[in-house]
Amino acid sequence: MTPAPKTYVRPMNRWWMRHPAYRRYLLREGTSVMVAAYALFLLAGMVCLVLGETAFNLWRGFLQSPVSVIFHLAALAAFAFHAWTWFKVMPLTTPPLRFRGRPVPDRMIFRAALWAWGIASLVLLVLAMRFL
């Protein structure tokens, strides 16, 4: 058997600098950190609710602060981008869908997801305005 030739393996350092698609991917995944941060923030609110009225009012008071407003705006932007990019890749993750014997085009799945998102947000907004 001939010996394996000497080869050179290039390092992967700064791999995300090599292609814009890698940076878009990291941005998409990075926004999930904000999604997690917002979930923790809501959890903190729940803990305050359990602790009692004083704690919950403190948490509600913090909601009015500029830091909280900036955090919520940043979270909204991150959520919107995260949802948009996930709807974009959604057709790749669904099982093969057919309508009247023909495959459902990717853009239909993307648009359906956008509509569902829009309607769900609207319903939530109406309910919030009605009951809060």
Partner: peptide, 26 residues
Amino acid sequence: CTLVGLCSEVCPKHVDPARAINRNKI
């Protein structure tokens, strides 16, 4: 696979490996 998705973009034969892989996750 973490669905970077560039594999499908560069495929000269439009095989779409990203779709094949992610459907198999189901």
